[in-house]
Amino acid sequence: MKNDIKQKSILLFEKKGFSETSIQDIVETLGVTKGTFYYYFTSKEQLLMDIHVSYIDDLLERQETVRLNQLSNRKKLEELIALLIIDIANHGPSGKVFFREMRHLCEDNAREVKRKREKFRKNLEAIISEGIAQNEFKKELEPGIIAFAILGVTNWSYQWFNPSGEISADRLARVYSDLIFNGIV
């Protein structure tokens, strides 16, 4: 039931927004009582935090798997770009809630989520730094800026990318990788 509450809430938050979705909306969608909701979550904000932590923890776990693979740093970056785009394709509503609704978390919860997001970015930055040290990437690159650029390009895709549209998630990931590694000239 806890997972059902989360999944239905994600869809409601995506459609109506966190502020406009009431606990009553959530329980009516599920056909349960508010008591059922409060058995699993103390508040709507705690539910939102659970959604955020689940989302980022899953990304961090999959990022770590890529980081530990015996691959070139370029290949690791390509896989992480694909991971982020395919995640948007597979979990679009969760991604929208993750990126759009964080402003509704209390200060302590927002700080925890930001810390985890920063860890993801720092891990990406470390791969870029290692690639520079191993002469896979240009020496003059600034790893921090490049990490932000990769995250900006990939994460913003949740706004417009339609997995059912004319471009697949795999193709979009390849386009982004080509852009990042080769530019447009």
Rank of each mutant, 00 (worst) to 15 (best):
M1K: 13
I5Q: 01
Q7Y: 02
L11Y: 05
F13A: 03
E14Q: 14
G17T: 01
S19C: 00
S22E: 00
S22Y: 01
I23Y: 03
V27T: 14
V27H: 07
G31F: 01
V32R: 10
V32C: 11
V32T: 11
G35T: 12
T36P: 00
F37W: 06
Y38G: 03
Q46T: 06
V53K: 15
Y55R: 03
D57T: 06
D58H: 02
L68A: 13
L71W: 10
S72H: 04
K76L: 08
L77Q: 06
E78L: 07
E78I: 04
L80K: 07
L84I: 10
I85A: 07
I86L: 12
D87C: 10
A89I: 08
G95T: 11
F98M: 07
R100S: 15
E101Y: 08
H104Q: 08
E107C: 03
V113A: 08
R115Y: 07
E118W: 07
F120N: 05
R121L: 12
K122Y: 11
K122P: 02
E125V: 07
S129P: 04
G131E: 11
A133N: 13
E136Q: 13
E136N: 09
F137I: 05
K139F: 04
L141M: 13
G144D: 09
A147I: 01
I150F: 05
I150A: 10
L151E: 08
S157I: 00
S157R: 02
Y158L: 09
Y158G: 02
G165P: 00
I167T: 10
A169H: 04
D170E: 14
V175T: 06
Y176T: 13
Y176F: 15
L179H: 01
I180H: 02
N182M: 10
V185A: 13
